[in-house]
């Protein structure tokens, strides 16, 4: 509960995001001050974590993404923005190869994780997913206890000692700012948690695998403003240790939490750059139109 003041601070823009955005479309999203957002120079200096080179993605014959090239810096938040159906979620799922589960999908080009090709035939998909965690749009707790939910990853990785598992669960829940709320009822069903808590539980579950990268598909899009604010605070804290990639169609949110932003439209990466610059001084007309809400 130490974070209450900052919750209040962020409450206002998020309120604007839910109610004011569509009514006042010409307003440019404001960049919050003093929240530790990385500048363009810092971004340029950061180590490259994931590098995407000329990647195209196909659903059987239909090309969903065309020639994407993008660099994702370490310990930063990268946001993918764009209208529905622009391919941003598909792109996100390419990083941990969740698209493999859909039959008839195909990837061209390469995505490198620290120099190793994610789509190489030698890649072990399970190891990959342990290093690149994912949180889904809709929180999906397993119908089990809170403890079992968080300890699932370590358990399948072979950790059986209760004490060790407990330590991991505690650490993960603390990092996801859920520990204080649930520490007395770890054996209760995760389905009894509120929506926002379930979402943080899913984050904790991903963190328990100790990944380097966290993918978030429209985090908090189904949550109330207060819960959203908590998740956004959390993203800010987590980026000190993790490389975070989020997909969002809420421009206010992208402006609040991300260091780097990439704008997608109809399967193309239109523009990418430091959030600061992209939102204040976009280079392309399409980007300008979209972030000011003039998009039709």
């Amino acid at each position: 509960m130490a974070s209450t003041p900052s919750v209040k601070k962020i409450m206002q823009p998020s309120d604007k995001a839910t109610s004011g955005y569509s009514k006042a479309p010409m307003v440019r999203p404001s960049i919050p001050e003093g929240k530790g957002m990385r500048t363009a120079d810092e971004l340029a200096q950061a180590t490259e974590k994931i590098s995407v080179r000329d990647m195209s993605f196909y659903y059987s014959e239909n090309r969903a993404l065309t020639d994407i090239s993008l660099s994702i810096p370490e310990c930063c938040v990268t946001a993918f923005i764009g209208p529905s159906g622009c391919g941003k979620s598909t792109f996100l799922r390419c990083f941990n190869r969740m698209n493999d589960m859909i039959e008839g999908t195909r990837v061209e080009g390469e995505i490198l994780l620290e120099g190793q090709d994610i789509y190489s035939s030698r890649t072990d998909i399970v190891t990959l997913r342990k290093r690149i965690g994912m949180v889904f749009q809709k929180s999906t707790p397993f119908p089990k206890s809170i403890f079992d939910n968080v300890s699932f990853g370590p358990k399948i990785a072979g950790i059986r000692k209760k004490k060790e598992l407990y330590e991991i669960v505690e650490r993960s829940l603390q990092r996801s700012a859920l520990w204080d709320e649930v520490k007395d009822r770890l054996s209760e069903s995760a389905l009894n948690l509120s929506g926002g808590q379930q979402h943080r539980l899913c984050i904790a579950r991903a963190l328990a695998n100790d990944p380097d990268i966290l993918l978030m598909d429209e985090p908090a899009s189904a949550l109330d403003p207060a819960s959203t604010a908590r998740i956004e605070d959390l993203i800010f804290e987590l980026k000190e240790q993790y490389t975070i990639v989020i997909v969002t169609h809420n421009m206010q949110q992208a402006a609040r939490v991300s260091d780097q932003a990439a704008f997608f439209y109809q399967g193309l990466l239109v523009e990418s750059g430091a959030t600061e610059e992209l939102f204040t001084n976009p280079k392309k007309q399409q980007t300008e139109d979209y972030i000011t809400g003039r998009f039709g």
Binding site: E114, Q116, T123, D124, R131, A157, I159, D210
Partner: peptide, 25 residues
């Protein structure tokens, strides 16, 4: 695999390749 897991807290391989991931992998 437990032998390995006892040494490092989480069996986390830096490489994505199967060969680098320990016996279980």
């Amino acid at each position: 695999e437990l032998g390995e897991a006892a040494v490092i807290k989480l069996p986390r391989s830096t490489s994505l390749e199967r060969a680098g991931g320990g016996l279980l992998v």
